[in-house]
Design a protein around this nucleic acid. Structure first.
Lengths: 208, 208
DNA sequence: ACCTGAACACCGTTCAAGT
DNA sequence: ACCTGAACACCGTTCAAGT
């Protein structure tokens, strides 16, 4: 900005490693070898450095996992449409959110999705609802309802990534009718429809 | 069973430590010091033994966590009522499930709740629905809907147990309206009502 | 048979150096 | 300033002993 020199500076930065590259590598490691393989040491080795730079760039393993989740969710909010019925858009938004959440390769990462992801990806829905006449409180409520439903649904439909087995003793029961892809899709669609229909009725009934 | 000797056997068992006691101690450790403190070594130390007996009794850390979750959920299915309207019972059941899930001290444990917890605690609801005229498919669907909604909701309303901080960089946003207890209760109630109302309408509309 | 000490192969994190 | 080797205090898990 304030530099007037346009000659290429030969800064010889000590490392060609900024935070985004670290998170990139972490996501790659996650995809390649699973969440349990994502350790500070392994990530450092993969980047050809000691663990120290990771700590100075991202702070912490906890922070690293937050950045990974952030990256996987993407800032890509579903999409701001020109003029749709709010209830149609609500359903579309919920399905888009589910699609996005399913990209996360390990359910455990979903658990660090709550607050800030809410704020970020909820915005277009919030705006549509406000434009449709919802007051702030009801719009926030509707966003939470749909957001939490999607997170809960994905958390439950996705298999546990951690190795598996379960070991120990007899696990009882047997849930013979496994939920396949089609079942899950239909069930999510049903859930969203129920919620949106409820919102429609409440809005018609007075609140809004 | 087949032994005819009723004299007290002086078996001198090598250890007074069965699997339930181990899980008891693990739950206590979890409550006292949090999930991150639940390690095989620490648990063994707390029990005054080497880690080996834990491995022979519960098999694995993964298995230990499953047993802990199992214990915390309890087999206590909400309650089988004499004669209620199925929709009232469905709401009651969902609230009871939420109450039970909230007892789990760490959200991460919720993620190992899915399949078998489903089978176990869903049964009374399933029976009531069948008695009310739902066929198997619709009853299972309704159970899943409410179960998943509850899990998702609790996963989101409960704070992350892991230390916190989040470290790293600026986390953007700010979600000014924090969800307090009353908000969460009202929101869950709303969600359950929407879902149950949806089920009611679908049943009336033909399916059942 | 069932326990223990000791070990293996890892962790997250931080130190005193090095350049 | 920013990196590294080395260390600290842990892990999960399993081994060859012990009784």
């Amino acid at each position: 900005m304030s530099s007037r020199c346009n000659l290429p500076r030969v800064t010889s930065r000590p490392l060609v490693l900024d935070r985004d590259e670290i998170v990139d590598a972490a996501v790659a490691l996650l995809r390649d070898e699973g969440l349990d393989a994502v350790s500070m040491r392994r990530l450092a080795a993969r980047l050809g450095v000691s663990p120290i730079p990771l700590y100075s760039r991202v702070g912490n393993k906890e922070a690293l996992l937050d950045r990974i989740t952030e990256r996987l969710l993407g800032h890509a909010a579903p999409d701001p449409p020109p003029a749709v019925a709010w209830d149609d858009y609500a359903a579309t938004w919920a399905h888009a959110l589910r699609r996005q959440l399913r990209e996360i390769p390990d359910t455990r990462l979903l658990m660090r999705t709550r607050r800030w992801a809410m704020v970020e990806s909820t915005r277009p829905l919030y705006r549509v609802l406000r434009a449709a006449g919802f007051d702030d409180g009801h719009a926030v409520r509707a966003c939470r309802l749909l957001m939490w439903a999607a997170v809960g649904f994905v958390a439950n439909e996705t298999g546990v990534a951690g190795a598996g087995g379960g070991g120990g003793g007899p696990v009882a029961g047997g849930d013979p009718s496994g939920v396949d892809q089609t079942d899950a899709d239909a069930l999510f669609d049903l859930q969203v429809r129920y919620l949106v229909e409820g919102l429609v009725r409440d809005q018609a009934g007075g609140g809004g």
